[in-house]
Write a protein that binds this DNA or RNA. Structure first.
Length: 567
RNA sequence: GCGCUCGUAGCUCAGUUGGAUAGAGCAUCAGCUUGCGGAGCUGAGGGUCGUAGGUUCAAGUCCUACCGAGCGCACCA
């Protein structure tokens, strides 16, 4: 239990004692007052007022008079209908001590120690380009995995590669039709496939003959027999190799890879079984599971030409995962547009007797100002373009500040800054809100951005270096200034933020917290001198700064953002 | 038509699960460096929280209806 939680428990005990036996307050009954000068923890007396038929103001006065303060609690005060508690320097000291002892472990807990969770994310389609929409999925998935691991959940992150959809058949057809003899250089392979995909999508709009040819290729690919298979294998490998390199570049944790093309046999067996059991029914030549009684429409599994649909293969995937890892819970980090398909999947699995806990971690997609991105039309902002523009800009800015730095250091720093900007902009938004991508915003390094957080961290490192002492203060008696108080209160709350993020699958909580913490540190740093402060104060402020640096690093690491000592 | 999501300052977003006077960033304007890193800090202006009802001691938050935007709803993934 963190110091902050312990303190809250203590306060709950005080309240319980003062109120009497008929009442046991819970963690939810106490809150943060809206302003710092109102205290650190507040207890509203409205519920008691109703039970006792007494005014909440009177109760607040009565309760606060009946409480013994001491230790971490400096003062208890009735303010209107609230009882407000003020923490003492001993509490601040305990927080700083906890951080300096636990270091990179500060904020973690072991609530997940007995639970295994599989997290499926990073599900790109081969033969298509990776755009900033995919990037949101990758980075959210990565951060979620790391946040869950910080609560000691046993997490199995997996990637599912869609290498067999009708989009693949389109590309294979397009190459055979128009690009059979072209030599594609290695660097251009992935872009070439994306170009062909857009080209085919546009040209065959009303071409029934072409659609039939593509359907035939699809059948060949699914059965792995026929003249198109070799070309599919070759181009598929181009994409998969590219994904592996890209995931490595982003440092995505992935313990298992699944491929759609690898699930065909399993899927056919499952569908057969569903038909036998009467769960799947025949309709207009296709096979489907009727979920209308659950208001989920129909789950279409097999086309009238006998080929399999994505939803069917997802069933096989679920069983494959279960066989190989038997996780207690499975999370699917997938675009909100697939909410219905997800519900259909879960419902169908349930009818098949699949009993594990399943949940869709839904996030809204990324659009441009012109509207949704679609590989079909080529209206996309590619990952590489974003990365390269950010990197160039970060390098220019860094060079301006450090003309003496050598190329290697410059590059490493610029990369960290660029990636921090990209990651933070993708992670700071609530998952249920779409991101309207705008290059001007994405390239901003000021305000609520990744580079601002790195900058705060770098300043703290510089401070530590200049202090020329590794001695850490064990007291906090002088940290009474409102700016210092706000800072250590914020440090104390980090474990709770982390916990909430892990339970609600909202990594944005951490992003907002870190920004707020940075602002509080900057305000403190700007107003109060650390190195020039008198003896005891100097040591304590250094400890406060060091603790801030530690928490910043912990949080940034969970978000996948690498800190740098200077920038 | 049915379903899901969203609507908070000019723009982009928070708002700790119903609590005290609704907060940040960007943009605009005015300041701060012979003091630890100005990618920073301080201040100002800017709000009928989409609209109308309801629930209650208390509503940006919950309920209902409506308005607006986005997405989904049988052979795409």
């Amino acid at each position: 239990m963190s110091v902050a939680q312990e303190a809250k428990q203590h306060i709950l005990q005080l309240i319980k004692t003062a109120v009497g036996k008929e009442y046991t307050p819970s963690m939810d009954d106490v809150m943060r007052p809206p302003k710092d000068d109102m205290g650190d923890i507040a207890f509203p007396c409205f519920d008691l007022a109703r039970a006792r038929k007494q005014s909440p103001q009177e109760i607040a006065i009565e309760l606060s008079a009946n409480m013994e303060v001491g230790g971490w609690i400096k003062q208890v005060k009735a303010q209107g209908p609230y009882v407000n508690f003020y923490y003492s320097p001993l509490f601040a000291q305990a927080v700083l001590q906890e951080i300096s002892e636990k270091r990179e472990k500060y904020g973690t807990s072991n609530v997940g120690a007995q639970k295994s969770i599989m997290v499926e994310y990073a599900q790109p389609n081969t033969h298509k380009a990776i755009h900033v929409g995919h990037v949101r999925n990758f980075l959210v998935g990565q951060a979620l995995v790391q946040v869950l691991r910080a609560q000691r959940y046993h997490v199995i992150p997996v990637s599912y590669i869609n290498d067999l959809g009708s989009h693949v058949a389109k590309v294979v057809w397009g190459i055979k039709k128009w690009h059979q003899k072209e030599e594609i250089i290695k660097e251009d392979r992935v872009a070439f496939l994306a170009r062909v995909y857009a080209e085919v999508s546009q040209k065959i709009e009303a071409d029934e003959g072409a659609k039939q040819e593509i359907a035939k290729i699809f059948q060949e690919l699914e059965s792995l027999k026929g003249p198109s298979v070799a070309l599919w294998k070759k181009t598929r490998k181009w994409s998969v190799d590219y994904f592996k390199a890209l995931f490595k570049e982003l440092g995505l944790p992935i313990d298992a890879w699944y491929f759609e093309s690898d699930l065909v046999v399993d899927t056919k067996n499952i569908v057969e079984d569903l038909i036998k059991k009467g769960i799947a029914i025949h309709s207009d030549g296709a096979w489907l599971v009727d979920l209308q009684s659950e208001k989920l429409g129909v789950n279409l599994l097999v086309r009238s030409d006998g080929t399999l649909l994505y939803n069917a293969k997802d069933l096989a995937l679920a069983f494959r995962k279960e066989e190989e890892y038997h996780p207690m819970q499975s999370l699917y980090v997938i675009d909100a547009r697939q909410s219905l398909a997800m519900q259909q999947l879960f419902s169908t699995l349930k009818r098949m007797g699949f009993e594990k806990e399943l949940a869709h971690v839904s996030y809204e997609f990324v659009t441009t100002k012109e509207g949704a991105m679609a590989s079909r039309t080529g209206n996309v902002i590619l990952y590489e373009e974003l990365r390269d523009r950010l990197t160039v800009m970060a390098k220019e800015e860094t060079k301006k500040r450090h003309p003496d730095w050598e190329e290697k250091k410059l590059k490493k720093t610029a990369r960290a800054i660029a990636f921090s900007a990209m990651r933070f902009s993708m992670l700071r938004q609530d998952l249920e809100k779409k991101i309207v991508f705008d290059f001007d915003e994405a390239l901003a390094f000021e305000g609520c951005t990744g580079p601002y957080l790195l900058y705060t961290y770098a300043r703290i490192q510089s401070l530590k270096k200049k202090a020329k002492t590794s001695k850490v203060s064990l007291s906090a008696d002088h940290l009474n200034h409102p700016l210092e108080h706000a800072l250590w209160m914020s440090l104390a709350s980090y474990p709770e933020v982390l916990f909430a993020a892990s339970q609600e699958h909202q990594v944005s909580f951490i992003a907002h917290y870190l920004f707020d913490l940075s602002q509080k540190f900057s305000a403190f740093y700007n107003e109060l001198s650390v190195l020039q402060a008198p003896g005891g104060t100097r040591e304590e402020r250094l400890a406060l700064a060091q603790a801030t640096g530690q928490v910043l690093q912990n949080g940034l690491t969970l978000l996948g953002i690498e800190t740098i000592p200077s920038m």
